[in-house]
């Protein structure tokens, strides 16, 4: 059984993930390393990558806090409509991202009912990223919070610790690895996000164009090698962040033992 699972996993991963990635890397380096670095370090590319990284970092950081709070409310609170809220959390995943983008544009654009216009700014892009990546942090933290028994928290509380102190020293360390994993996933998803951000960004090259849109425009104008190169740069960034999150998360888990 173990062997057949292994075979299935390796075959599946190769077909679905590894071969496409290998093809992409091959394409990116088809013009040699100089062409690769040239494409990535071009000013238009660097501007797009910089904006994307900034928005992905801020968006996933905000979602780390907001997602933790939401998961907490879902697990620890009881209120009318809780089941509905729990179901609604995942909807950003189900909604076509283009629809999300248009919706956000109407809400936070030039004709915003709240008189807030963030279109064409990094804040607008970040808002879109926050919308599409919220489920990652909530769903990563929620099961850990559910499986957590109150014994340790109750003990700390009876020993005279304030609720904030209990949260910081007892609850948060248990949640941290899951929170970190969720935030890492949100970040990785954010840097590749296209549909929801391309509209709200106003898509101005050098100013408000995100990396995914820049890559898309390279592809449609026949510059597939450059598109591959910038894509590989995004993948490397994602890999570094996910690996770091994983390493810190493992250290935290072992540190608790």
């Amino acid at each position: 059984m173990r062997r057949s699972f292994k075979g299935l996993a390796v075959t599946y991963l190769s077909l679905v993930v590894l071969i496409p990635f290998a093809a992409l890397v091959t394409k990116a380096f088809a013009g040699g390393p100089a062409a690769f670095f040239g494409a990535v370090t071009q000013r238009e590319s660097m501007d797009a990558l910089g904006l994307t990284l900034l928005c992905a970092l801020v968006g996933s950081a905000v979602n780390a806090v907001a997602g933790l709070a939401t998961a907490w409310v879902l697990v620890r609170d009881r209120f009318v409509g809780q089941g509905l809220l729990n179901a609604v959390i995942d909807l950003p995943f189900a909604l076509p991202t283009v629809v999300a983008g248009v919706t956000l544009y109407t809400l936070y654009g030039p004709s915003s009912p709240f008189h807030v216009n963030v279109t064409g700014t990094w804040i607008g892009v970040t808002v879109a990223i926050m919308f599409v990546t919220l489920p990652f942090t909530v769903r990563a933290v929620q099961p850990v919070l559910e499986s957590l028994t109150f014994n340790a928290e109750a003990a700390a509380s009876t020993l005279g610790a304030s609720s904030a102190h209990v949260f910081r020293t007892v609850t948060l360390p248990v949640l941290a690895p899951a929170l970190l994993t969720g935030t890492g996933l949100a970040f990785a998803r954010a840097i590749g996000e296209y549909g929801s951000v391309v509209f709200i960004s106003n898509n101005l090259p050098y100013r408000s164009q995100v990396a995914s849109s820049y890559i898309y425009s390279l592809t449609t104008s026949g510059q597939t090698r450059s598109a591959g190169a910038v894509s590989v740069a995004l993948l490397v960034i994602a890999l570094v962040v996910l690996t770091a999150c994983g390493a810190v998360s493992r250290r935290l888990t072992h540190g608790r033992r």
Binding site: V102, Y105, T106, G109, P110, S111, T119, G120, V198, F199, N202, N203, L204, P205, Q209, S213, Y216, S217
Partner: peptide
């Protein structure tokens, strides 16, 4: 130019949305 949406249709949509 304040916005360069990906297509003619997307541009009209952005303009109608107030951009």
């Amino acid at each position: 130019t304040v916005a360069q949406p990906t297509s003619g249709s997307a541009s009209l949509a952005a303009f109608l949305a107030g951009t």
